[in-house]
Amino acid sequence: MIRLEQVSHQFANGTRALSDINLALSGQDFTVLIGPSGAGKSTLMRVLNGLVRPKSGKVWIGDTEISRAPERVVRLERRRIGMVFQSFNLVKRLTALENVLLGRLGDMPGWRSTLRLYTKADRSLAMNTLERVGMADFAWQRADTLSGGQQQRVGIARALAQRPQLILADEPISALDPKSSEQVMELLRDIQKRDGIAVLTNLHHLDAVREYAGRVIALKSGSVFFDGSVQRLTDEITRDLYYGETADDSSSHAQSNVPALSTDNQTGSPSFLLE
């Protein structure tokens, strides 16, 4: 169970990306995040895995509150949250298998990983996840020689190798052709259904949203504009979402289901070497 309580975030340059977000991602939902460009969808996902520390509010991963926790604690929680990217973000010069093994880093002691001494269990887990996404034949091929659709499937395998409870997929199909898009979305749906891993993804095409979503969360100008099952997402709401006035007006269709708590400030760190 992952919960956001009164989460607001403002970037160092003053851009207000999230305001007063309350939501809970429980169990085995296939949740789709929608909203106009700049609404804060990517920021919300990065708050969920601690890559962005919100200015205020609380982020609960299970029983751990990470918004102000030390980096080491956040890292431990982050292991159980896989992330899939629009531009795949495979380490280009590594093979597909090595990329999937990156998903094991969080559970490895430093010296073992520096020497690339992956355990037999890790290697077979990586191979199995590659098989799961239909990429076992490409295990030894360098990532930058794969097609976009293949790279994205390796990206999903990397997330799976983390043995995650939640997979965050930020526009996983925006850079893909229709056929690859379908494969990737079917795969994500299958993972959510069969493996019971919650999926939170962000899609731009409403057709795809209606096809795959169970629950829909709509963001507008950093606020939750709609939160409910896909059946309740009417054409009127989506029109308001993309073409209506700003979200500050009273037409918000969101229902807050998380109790409000006190807030505190915490800024994120700019360098990834900072503890």
């Binding site: 890292r75 292991r79 990217f85 380490v91 010069r93 969080g106 430093g110 990983s113 983390q162 070497l273």
Partner: peptide, 28 residues
């Protein structure tokens, strides 16, 4: 490429692991 770095970070890798597995392969 910061995208590749962020992806390694997102797995829960430590700063040293980000260097050895995200930065190093790119600069070899």
């Amino acid at each position: 490429d910061t995208g590749q770095i962020e992806a390694v970070q997102a797995t829960g890798a430590s700063p040293l692991q980000v260097l050895t597995h995200g930065v190093w392969p790119q600069i070899v």
